[in-house]
């Protein structure tokens, strides 16, 4: 089983996140970053599949030099090798361009050893659009089975459970396929100390756009279909409304909830 996991290096959600004032892109320089927590579930799931059988997990990221940390963390968890696509021209890319770069990288990874499964998180914790998995599947011509809270890989197929508001679906796709996973699917492991030391010896390839045959005009801020025009910090939270209970507290609360369409 040859699995590629797409991971993203994101600004730490615990820190004060903001935009770069020069071009209104996410500020990645002044905030400590980390492997997107939602992608840890994807790495863990891929590792469990390979550990239960055989195969190799390649982690793939697109991002600036600092994004190497996301690969490192994945390798420390147990992934076998990493691919880091880094090119100045990618800065500011939207989901469409990102999916293009990822797709070309996955094709290149699969050139020698065909990829059976692509696993992604359900969304990034910074952009939070959640569209890259389906865009990527479309570009690769793979079935997309998304938002998996369980994943069973059996011979030539992948079966997921997707939990909806009113129903639970069981969906099967033939391999090769793309699966995005939710934070319900597993409990990501901590990198063990042995894993941390072993990761240093694992291979990481560095590719540019030229290596992938992608023209710089297809990516980056200028090629983006959307851009951030302005941004405003959220105003500080105002003090809540205190309801004094004079025997009618319940009614007042119900009225408040109704008025704000909470019930």
């Amino acid at each position: 089983m040859n699995i590629v996991v797409c991971v993203k290096y994101v600004p730490d959600a615990q820190a004060e996140r903001t935009f770069d004032s020069s071009d209104n892109t996410t500020d990645r320089a002044n905030v400590d970053g980390l492997l997107s927590e939602l992608d840890e579930y994807a790495v863990e799931e891929a590792l469990q599949i390979v550990e239960a059988g055989e195969g190799e997990v390649t982690v793939l990221t697109v991002g600036p030099a600092s994004a190497a940390d996301a690969i490192k963390k994945s390798l420390q968890m147990g992934a076998h090798r990493g691919v880091h696509v880094d090119d100045d021209a990618i800065h500011g890319s939207d989901a469409i361009a990102t999916s293009l770069v990822l797709a070309e990288a996955i094709k290149k990874i699969g050139a020698d050893n065909p990829v059976d499964l692509v696993v992604t998180g359900m969304a990034s914790t910074d952009g939070a659009m959640g569209v890259v998995p389906t865009m990527l599947a479309e570009r690769l011509g793979l079935p997309a089975v998304t938002l998996a809270s369980e994943l069973e890989v059996d011979g030539g197929s992948a079966t997921i459970r997707r939990d909806g508001d009113t129903s639970t679906q069981s969906i099967t796709a033939t391999l090769p396929a793309l699966v995005s996973v939710t934070d319900q699917i597993n409990e990501p492991r901590y990198p063990s100390f042995k894993g941390i030391m072993a990761a240093k010896k694992k291979p990481v390839e560095h590719w540019s756009l030229a290596d992938l045959g992608v023209d710089a005009s297809q990516v980056g801020l200028d090629a983006a279909w959307t851009r951030v025009e302005t941004f405003t910090a959220r105003p500080p939270r105002s003090q809540g409304e205190i309801v004094n209970d004079e025997g009618d507290g319940g009614q007042k609360l119900a009225a408040f909830l109704g008025e704000h369409k909470f019930v």
Binding site: K72, Q76, Y190, P191, S192, F193, I196, M197, K200
Partner: peptide, 12 residues
Amino acid sequence: DDRSIRDTVRRF
């Protein structure tokens, strides 16, 4: 290396 180890324990 030491920082990686520290970080994993901190998270735990």
